[in-house]
Simulated assay, not measured.
Amino acid sequence: MAVLVTGGAGYIGSHAVAALQERGEQIVIADNLQQGHKASLLGGKLYIGDLRDADFMDTVFKENTIDAVIHFAANSLVGESMKDPGKYYHNNVYGTLCLLEKMNQYGVKKIVFSSTAATYGEPENVPIDEHDRTFPTNAYGETKLAMEKMMKWFDTAHDIKFISLRYFNAAGAHAGGQIGEDHDPETHLIPVVLQVALGQRPHISVFGEDYATEDGTCVRDYIHVSDLADAHVLAVEKLRQGGESAVYNLGNGTGFSVKQVIDAARQVTGKEIHAVVEARRAGDPAVLVASSARARKELGWNPSRSKLEDIIGSAWAWHQANPGGYND
């Protein structure tokens, strides 16, 4: 029996593939390579195509005995989602509908979903709990919430069990050094800071330093990408053991400020890393941090790479070895 990983050639998806590979799983990957990289795959059987292509998905399911799906395939840029929400509804929501229909057609009853804590919108509590209200403030978060709701109704109608994992910022790189973070455009703080350290950018922009936080800059949740990958694998195992559908937050519980990230990057790289304070960005909450208490208790998730310096250090090692990314 195999695990199908949609979007498995992407950043988090490729690390999930590596985690599955280390556990001896059979892995099938479906990716249209819009953002993914073939060079990021350490194993598995790759099919290049789109979830919305029914013939393509028939081939994937007919040629493999799949018992579970890990679903990463989605567009995920908040700013872009506000400018082109139709793209996000078509790829994220309709793509998920196509996937669920094929799962039902071929009798695959387990799916782990890479969701986002952006489904909560402006937080009511810090850290955010799974029972807090969901009120997304951008189209990206809204589509992810719609995907979760769709899965709930497919469970009700077709007994397809799902586990949705909500988290904020994945960071770092695989311990083996073969895979890391390569986006175009790059918008995530840690790789952008490291591009400054590499001389690829003149400075890092700090959007506001007058927030109600300890150092005045925004605080965010950063989790090592391999810890996130482990959580997805644990979720597959829970479903295989008969677990019911559920939603779990994945977070470090405290968060790190923008200044803390920049200072840690200076320490790790030994570079000056010039920072420029600019105006706040509209819609940036002061603190976004998720509680992972439930995931730790019910999934047995125990993130082991939570030190900021370790997260940045692993990313720095990969970016130094691959300053131009995967070059594919």
Rank of each mutant, 00 (worst) to 15 (best):
D67I: 13
Q178K: 15
K87P: 13
R166Y: 10
E122P: 13
D184N: 14
Q105V: 10
N92F: 02
N104L: 10
Y120K: 00
Q178D: 14
K161Q: 13
K109V: 09
A173L: 03
D84C: 15
G95T: 12
G107W: 12
A157T: 11
L77C: 11
I70T: 03
K87Y: 14
F162R: 00
K102T: 10
I128G: 07
G86Q: 05
H131K: 12
H174T: 07
H183E: 11
F168Q: 04
T137D: 04
I160P: 04
I66T: 08
F168A: 09
V112K: 04
K144F: 02
E80M: 08
F113T: 00
G86F: 01
P127M: 11
A118S: 05
A175F: 05
V193K: 05
G95C: 01
G95I: 04
H188L: 13
T119L: 03
E186S: 11
A74I: 00
M82C: 14
R166Q: 09
V192T: 15
Y106A: 09
D159W: 04
H174D: 15
N169H: 02
R166F: 00
V78A: 10
L189P: 10
A68V: 06
T116A: 02
Q105Y: 11
Y89W: 14
T65G: 11
T119P: 07
P185E: 11
R133P: 05
P123L: 03
E80Q: 09
E101R: 12
D184T: 06
Y120I: 05
N75R: 02
Q105K: 15
K87S: 13
G79T: 03
